[in-house]
């Protein structure tokens, strides 16, 4: 069986806007932009901090590792403070990524006054509830769940 999941692409045709499942590589993707000490941006999401090693995940699911010390001082501190001893379990990474994306969308819609305070609160609450269920099914303990909610921005 042949899968094309690692190369999803969105392209425009004459009448459709599309997401393509392709075998292409080098897809530009980003999440939280982090900056290394040389000033280069790294666009990915943190999924764990173990000792001095930060694991990042790109939106396509691929991962890479950087030393904490290679990041700019501000980012280094942000990651150290939020992620020390914390890891998104592998089975939860897709849910976590989707959860963060949804929160970002909701926050943006709210800032554009497309969502009222009440609508934002209700939708955020629904998203948190769904994510907590995912955490529960992954047997994540309460403290780790709470920390993931914190780093996701759900509690802001």
């Amino acid at each position: 069986m042949k899968y094309h999941s690692d190369s999803l692409r969105v392209k425009r045709s004459v009448v459709v806007l599309t997401a393509l499942l392709l075998l292409a590589v080098g897809r530009s993707s980003s999440a939280q932009p982090w900056t290394n000490a040389a000033g280069h941006a790294v666009e990915a999401e943190v999924v764990s901090l173990k000792g001095d090693l930060v694991d990042f995940e790109r939106p396509d699911g691929s991962t890479f590792q950087l030393r904490l010390g290679s990041l700019a001082p501000d980012d280094r501190e942000t990651i150290r403070r939020a992620w020390s001893g914390l890891e998104v379990p592998r089975g939860l990474r897709t849910d976590f990524r989707q959860f963060r994306r949804l929160l970002q969308r909701l926050t943006q819609l709210h800032s554009m006054e497309r969502l009222t305070d009440a609508q934002l609160a209700a939708q955020r609450q629904r998203a948190v509830k769904a994510f907590k269920l995912c955490c529960s099914s992954e047997q994540l303990d309460e403290e780790a769940t709470a920390r993931l909610l914190l780093v996701s921005g759900a509690l802001y």
């Binding site: 999803l8 969105v10 997401a19 980003s30 932009p33 990524r97 994306r101 943006q108």
Partner: peptide
């Protein structure tokens, strides 16, 4: 989607 948010796009997030 928001053209200024790199994480906000039409994309298949999961295929299993």
């Amino acid at each position: 989607t928001f053209a200024f948010l790199a994480t906000d796009l039409l994309q298949v997030d999961q295929l299993t």
